[in-house]
Simulated assay, not measured.
Amino acid sequence: MAFRRRTDPPSLPKGEALTAALVGLGMAFAAEPALEPNIENTLLAASIEGMEQEDLRVLAMLLTWLEIHSAWVNVDRLTCLVSQQGAEQVRAFWSAVGHWLGKDRRFARMAKAYTGPRRDLLGTGTDFLVRRSGEDPRLTEGPLRVPAGALRDRRGDVLRPAELAIRHRTYRCRILLGPSYRADMWAELEAEPSLTAAELARRASGSFATAWHVKRDWNLLKSAQTG
Rank of each mutant, 00 (worst) to 15 (best):
T115H: 13
T115S: 14
T115D: 15
T115P: 00
T115I: 10
T115E: 14
T115V: 14
G116Q: 05
G116D: 08
G116V: 03
G116T: 11
P117Y: 00
P117R: 00
P117V: 00
P117N: 00
P117F: 01
R118T: 15
R118G: 06
R118E: 15
R118N: 10
R119I: 08
R119W: 03
R119A: 11
R119S: 08
D120H: 15
D120E: 14
D120N: 15
L121C: 05
L122A: 04
L122H: 01
L122V: 02
L122F: 03
L122R: 00
L122P: 01
G123P: 11
G123Q: 09
G123C: 06
G123K: 11
T124L: 14
T124W: 15
T124S: 12
T124E: 14
G125H: 08
G125P: 11
G125A: 12
T126N: 04
T126S: 07
T126V: 12
D127P: 00
D127I: 12
F128H: 10
F128W: 13
F128I: 06
F128K: 12
F128A: 07
F128M: 12
L129N: 03
L129R: 09
L129K: 10
L129V: 08
V130I: 13
V130F: 06
V130A: 04
R131N: 14
R131V: 08
R132G: 03
R132S: 11
R132Q: 13
R132Y: 10
S133M: 05
S133D: 10
S133H: 11
S133E: 08
S133Y: 09
S133N: 07
S133F: 09
G134Y: 02
G134Q: 01
G134I: 02
E135I: 03
E135A: 11
E135C: 07
E135H: 04
E135N: 08
E135K: 05
D136I: 13
D136V: 04
P137W: 03
P137C: 04
P137L: 00
P137R: 05
P137M: 00
P137E: 05
P137D: 05
R138K: 13
R138T: 01
R138I: 08
R138Y: 14
R138F: 12
R138N: 06
L139G: 06
L139H: 10
T140P: 03
T140N: 01
T140K: 11
T140C: 05
T140Y: 06
T140S: 04
T140H: 05
T140L: 05
E141C: 14
E141R: 12
E141L: 13
E141Y: 13
E141S: 14
G142L: 04
G142S: 07
G142T: 01
G142Q: 02
G142M: 06
P143R: 09
P143H: 09
L144W: 01
L144M: 10
L144Y: 02
L144K: 10
L144S: 05
L144T: 11
